[in-house]
């Protein structure tokens, strides 16, 4: 597959704080894409969560993007319901 035929989608999601963006990054970064033909790269910068998708099939890309959006919504709902006091650091990464 040539580089030209790859489709790329970049999304940037603003979070209420740098800490919540970082937290969401750690939640999302461990899950590999179920389809090997889709590359997903998660990063965070300040209060932004940045996700880059790459693949040759637009249908598979759409599924991957939708799935990440669903997960971000669930993370946000969890933060709303249980995030009254969020630990400033996570000390158990080992």
């Amino acid at each position: 597959m040539t580089e030209e035929s790859l489709l790329t989608i970049n999304i940037e999601i603003p979070f209420p704080s740098n800490r919540t963006a970082e937290l969401a990054y750690h939640v999302l970064r461990v899950d590999a894409e179920p389809k090997k033909t889709i590359q997903k790269e998660v990063t965070h910068k300040e209060h932004l969560l940045i996700v880059k998708f790459q693949g040759s099939s637009s249908k598979q890309l759409r599924v991957a993007v939708n799935s990440v959006f669903e997960n971000i919504i669930l993370i946000n709902e969890t933060l709303d319901a249980f995030g009254d006091s969020i630990s400033e650091t996570y000390t158990h990464f080992t």
Binding site: L23, H26, V27, V30, F82, G83, I86, S87, T89, Y90
Partner: peptide, 22 residues
């Protein structure tokens, strides 16, 4: 896969909120 992943998302989120090992 999908049901496992959904529940794991919440577990990973609260583990970080509470700063607890996962």
């Amino acid at each position: 896969g999908a049901p496992l992943a959904t529940v794991a998302i919440v577990a990973r989120t609260v583990a970080q909120i509470w700063n607890k090992p996962l």
